[in-house]
């Protein structure tokens, strides 16, 4: 009794010592690796050329404002795509969950949909829809690459999002559904008030990962015309014969995606703690 009032127990002291020791080791090994990289890479024979081509400060200064401006288009496409993806993804997930045999075609559609759009590379979907559908002879503004590029992104990402929602829905124990039904709730009310609120909350961290992936894939719309950051960087690359604009674009992406990734990790860790 008196021991615990005096301060840490011997066990705690020992653990603290271990922790300090491992932190010192981690700091030493990290600085050795960083120092080796910083010293060794510039010693390679091609470093001057690589530096000139990829890390040219003059070009960074010249291209940054326009690249940042082009990035706003990425953000805009992202912003209007997300609600559409969430809505369509949820609808597909629900279609795959219908249990009435009469509605089996709906279920079949859901299965085919997720199979096809998860199986085809995004860039191909962007190409086929972005050039193919306007080619049917639609008039402006209904042939806009922004419109059909967004459709392509939404169709593809909704397939992933639907699968994640479905996993969330299936993770809710069947007893909850049965309990709700036995209380006299209709199947749709059961889904709406009992299953979905739990299911959606459970899959939020996984959906965050999809959002991060989407944030990067927005750049694929550049294939069908819009001049967003990736395309703008490509133009600079070609005019200045330097890859530095790509590095600048990558840095701009990271400024957005790293906080988002950290947030997703944090949410996932919180959820895991809550579960255990």
């Amino acid at each position: 009794m008196s021991d615990s009032n005096k301060g840490p127990t011997r066990r705690q002291a020992h653990e603290r010592k271990l922790k300090r020791r491992s932190m010192i080791l981690a700091a030493i090994s990290t600085s050795v690796v960083v120092a080796a990289l910083v010293i060794l890479i510039p010693l390679t024979p091609g470093w001057e050329r690589v530096k000139q081509s990829f890390f040219n400060w003059d070009i960074v200064v010249r291209t940054f404002p326009k690249l940042l401006n082009a990035f706003l288009l990425d953000v805009a496409i992202f912003a209007w795509s997300v609600p559409l993806i969430a809505a369509l993804g949820l609808a597909i997930a629900l279609a795959r969950d219908v249990r009435d045999p009469v509605f089996y075609p709906l279920r079949l559609f859901g299965i085919l949909y997720t199979d096809i759009f998860r199986g085809v590379p995004v860039v191909l979907v962007v190409y086929l829809i972005g050039f193919g559908i306007p080619g049917l002879g639609l008039q402006r503004p209904f042939n806009s690459p922004y419109l059909w590029g967004t459709v392509a992104l939404v169709l593809t990402y909704a397939a992933y999002v639907a699968e994640i929602f479905r996993s969330g829905i299936e993770s809710i124990h069947a007893s909850q559904r049965n309990a709700a039904l036995s209380l006299g709730m209709s199947p749709s009310d059961t889904m709406r008030f009992v299953i979905l609120p739990q299911a959606i909350r459970r899959v939020v961290p996984a959906q965050m990962n999809i959002l991060i992936a989407l944030q990067k894939d927005v750049a694929l719309l550049s294939f069908i015309g819009p001049v967003e950051i990736f395309r703008q960087a490509g133009v600079f690359k070609s005019l200045l014969a330097s890859f530095t604009p790509y590095v600048v674009a990558a840095a701009i992406f990271l400024v957005v995606t790293i906080p988002a990734t950290r947030l997703a990790d944090h949410m996932l860790a919180k959820q895991n703690r809550a579960r255990s």
Binding site: P134, N143, V235
Partner: peptide
């Protein structure tokens, strides 16, 4: 609007974009 190659520019022209 900017495109990867001549074929894509032609496609966009053809599609009226």
């Amino acid at each position: 609007m900017l495109y990867n190659d001549n074929a894509d520019v032609s496609a966009a022209l053809q599609a009226g974009q």
